[in-house]
Structures are given as structure tokens and as C-alpha cells.
Design a protein around this nucleic acid. Sequence first.
DNA 1: TTCCAGGCGTATC
DNA 2: GATACGCATGGA
Length: 265
Amino acid sequence: MDYLVRNKDIHLFQDNFDLDETLDCGQAFRWEKASDGKYYGAKMNFPLTVYKEKDYFVLENTREEDFLNVWYDYFDLATDYGELKRIYSEDETLCKACGYASGIRLLRQDPWESLVSFIISQNNNIPRIKGIISRLCGLYGGFPEPSDMRGTAPEELEPLRAGFRSKYLCDAAEKVNFGEIDLDKIKGLSPEEGRAALTAIKGVGPKVADCTMLYGMYKTDCFPTDVWIKRVLAEYYPNGFPDLPSRGIAQQYLFHYMRTKQDKE
DNA sequence: TTCCAGGCGTATC
DNA sequence: GATACGCATGGA
């Protein structure tokens, strides 16, 4: 890792990293690129402004301590994506996907934030998911902790315009508050055990559970299979998906490739 | 207007 | 276990 502390900013020199590809590829829904070209977002209630300048990334107004404790982990800077892509590129389709958006990194998000985000994602499109999460943060003055939602009734979430998903959010909050769901404990379980635990929440099925574990708990063996990945599997992997390390990260390249390739071709 | 979106609950067989 | 259908909302 190569970085400098400059005034109040962190300057990060990092390869295999593109902000557009990482922050706007459907794994996180709270990053917005403003007209100044900078990304404004947050992990839970840790805000960050980040942008590219020359050959380094600027983490604006960020203390070294917060960089090392929060953002180093969040941007998965300890993982060698060059090595992962070398392995993936032995597969023809993955080779194209990795070349198509070579700067994708898997964000290590907060478990609760991921759970909430992907409950909202079901049968929904990305711009609308972002809108609902933005209104959720507006309603609570920041991304709500489970305890902030204690006792919340679905009708109280009407301003989100989340539709049928509101009751699922309330059930998730209740089960986490009650201790019926222990996200820290699930972190230590196998993907199968984690699935079994998470799907006790109303509105959480296999796909949302896998997303929660992949993005929120860094369980890179999880391979969320949504409509786009089903298309990838049907079109390119009729005989099954190969056994690869961190297949969840491979999934992220494939998802982005399948979802956007027509736009550029 | 109709179709679809990073699915899931429920009913039915 | 698999299959069919409804679901809130809003953009294309």
C-alpha cells in the first residue's frame, strides 16, 4: 500500500482501482458523483469524499487513522486484484469481463447496511434502489442503526416509497434488535449456515442472503445469482461455473459486464 | 400502455 | 422440489 498524508487529505496510489467502476457497479447504492467530479458517499455514518487526481486518489479531509481503520478495509486494499484477474482470465468470458472493467474492487461494506440495501434491491432497479436508500437516510438523519428502527411500523416508512419492502425492513430491524439475528455471529458461520440464519427474515431469500454475506461480511465464496447472473450462466456456462477462488468477486465482474456491455458496444 | 427491475412469499401440485 | 402468480413503484 502506498499513500501520503497531505494537509487534511490522504493521497492513495492504487492500481486495479477505478472509482466509477467500483462505486457505481451495483454493489453499493450511496455513492453519488457530483458535478465537481468527486464521489460523495458513506459507509454507514462515516462520510467520505473521494476522487482521482493525476495518478493518485484523494480521500478528502480524511485522517490517517480513519483511512487505516475504515477505508483501507472498505476498499479492500489488502487484496491483490491483479493476481485474481490473472487467475480469472484463464476463463474466456471472465477474461472479457475483467478487461471490460478492470478497476472493479469488492467493497467491504457494513453487514446491516448491506442487509437493508439488498432487501430494498429485490424486484427493483438500481436508480430506484438509490432513491429509496437516500430517503431512508433522510428520514433518520443518516443511515439508521437497527436500534434507530426499533418499534418502527411499515406505515412509518411510507415516505421511502419502498412499496412491499417496508414490512421486510421492519422485520429485519426487529429480528436484529431482538437478538434473533446476530450479524456478528453470522459473520463466523459458513455460507450455508449464514443463509439459513438470514432467510429467517421476511423478504430475505437466497439471493439477498448471499449479497449480505458477500458485500457485508466479505464472504467471497458467496455467489449471488440474480437475473443478470442467470443470463451469464445460461449463455456462457451451460456446464456450470468453474471452481475459482473468491468466486463472489468474479461474480462482480460478470454482473457489471452483462448488465452494461450493450451500452458500450 | 405494457414491460421490467441485483426476488420473495404464498398457494398448489 | 418445482412452478405460477402477485407484489409497490417508477422509468423506459
